[in-house]
Structure formats: structure tokens, C-alpha cells
Amino acid sequence: MATDTEPVDRSRRFYDDGFSIGRFEITPEDFWGWLTILPVLLLYTLVALIPIAFAIAASVHRVPLLNPTWDFVGVENYANVFQLDRFWGSMWRGFVFMVGSTVIQLTVGVWMALVLNKITRGSRILSTLVFTSYLIPTIIVTMMFLFMLDPYDGVLHAAGARFGLWEGYLLGNTQLSMTAVVIISSWKFSAFVTLFTLAQLQSIPDRFYEAAKVCGATTWEMFRDITLPRIYGALLVVIFLRGVFMFNKYDIIWQLTQGGPGSQTTTMPILAYRETFERGAYGMGNAIAVVMFLALLVSGLVYLKYLNPSQEVET
């Protein structure tokens, strides 16, 4: 405690007047500022910076999985990656998976949000039901679809085969497996788009629609001239998030098809996993992951620069 009677004021701490470390002057504000963000910095370093650095480091070494000695090979892994046919194939399939599932999720998600926003009775219970699909763990979703698509007693399989949509096991079908994986992922993640869009829709005052009706606007014109401009910013954010999430999506594809049949559903994360654990090439797997990361980083920055969703959200 403060001992004011003593000639030296010991109640003042060392940081009260600032101090310096070498040439750096530390004011009390600096001291408290850094102290406050230090836990976050530490956590971020631990969960993000170190693993990323580790992956980048691994990508420039040859690391056989069963004999983890790190031989430095420079960019050899990268050179090999770009020469792999299966790399370019998986990049294309990853792109198809990302665009296909994002488009479906966007369409279905926005449509569900519009319907939920219109319904006056029971909309709460209905939204809860819709959002349940997003909350169900991926493993349950995939198990459910695997059961339903089972060629012997699956109900979806029975229906699909009956109407001649496919023959045999759908997820083993070389032409349709990608479509099936896209649709199943969209089933789970459309609700994410609904959640975002619905919040935005509910912030549009009824007056806007009444004023538009007075001006003579049809339902479509009201959607085009009021609803769409008001949710455009939120949609840009949602498209960005869904695109990134779907490009990186690993669990749902792996649980459904393990990237098969053959490599029909092997997207980039699946390829990285297969290279690492099936071919035992740890360094190579990491090189693929780093390439994925850079591809996403570049396209993400381009997207944000040219479409600038934050600006759209404000107005």
C-alpha cells in the first residue's frame, strides 16, 4: 500500500512515468496497450502463425512420413506439385466444387430467407428447423446420406433408381458423384446463407415496399429495386465466406467418398491429405496446402478489392 510518509514515493509503479528499453521509449499508454493485446497475440501466434510457419517449413523439405527426417530440398516439392497431373485435376475439381456448391447455397439460401421473411405465422419454428441443418454435425449429415443412398436399403437410392436418375451406388458413379457431393454439402450449408440474408431482409422497413407499391411496382420490381440493393452487401460477404469455406472443405467430401470414385471428387484438400497419408509424402502434402493457401489469398484479395463488400454494407 501507499506509504506517503516515506521520502521516496513507493506508490508509483515503474510504468507510471514510462520507461525505455534501449532506444524504445515506452509511455504508460504503450505499456497498457501492449499488455492488453498480448494474450491475443500469443494465442494467434500459437494457433495460426506457428502452424503456418511449420507447414511452409515442411513444404521445402522432403519428409517421408514413416521416417521423419527433414531433408532440405528447396522448391523441389513445389516444382513436383505443378508437374502433377492430379494436382491440376484436383484444382479444377476444387473449383467446380466451390463454385457449384456456393451457387446452389446462394440460390436456395436466399430463396429460403425470402420465404421465411414473408411468413407471419410460425416463421420462428420454421427458421429453427431450417437452421437445424446447419447445426447438425457433418458426420451425422454424411451418415444420414450414406444410409439413404445405400444401394440395398437406402430410401433416396430407391427413389432415384426408380425414376431412372442413376444406376448403382450414386456416390460411386463416376459421372454423378461430384454433383451428389455438391448437393449434399449445399443441403447442410444453405442455412448459413439464409441466416445472413434473413437478418438483412428484416432490417428493410415495410414502408419501402409500401412506397414502391404506390409507385406501381410489381413484386419482381420490388425485389429488383429494393430487396436486392439492400441485401447486396451482405450477399457479397456471404459469397466470399462460402467460397473460402467450400474451397477448403475437407470433412464432408472425405466422409462421403474419400475423394473417389477414382479421383472424381478429389479436391485440393483431399489431394493434400492423400499425398501426405496415402503416399507418405509429408513435405509434398504441405506444399499443396501452401499453394492452396496462396491461391485463396490472391483470389480473396482480388475479390475484396474489386467488390468491396464493406462499403456496400454501409450504404
Binding site: 422497413p205 419501402f208 409500401e210 412506397a211 407499391k213 404506390v214 406501381g216 440493393p229
Partner: peptide, 20 residues
């Protein structure tokens, strides 16, 4: 008749101009 076919002009208390 729906509002659109009545050809009225209406001024609201909260004005309802489109901000975009």
C-alpha cells in the same frame, strides 16, 4: 384493386425514400 392499380400519391410520416 391492389395499390399499384390505384395510381395514388402517398406521403408517409417516415418519408420512406430509398437510401440506395
Amino acid at each position: 384493386y391492389p395499390v399499384q392499380q390505384r395510381g395514388i400519391a402517398l406521403l408517409f410520416q417516415d418519408i420512406a425514400l430509398y437510401p440506395h
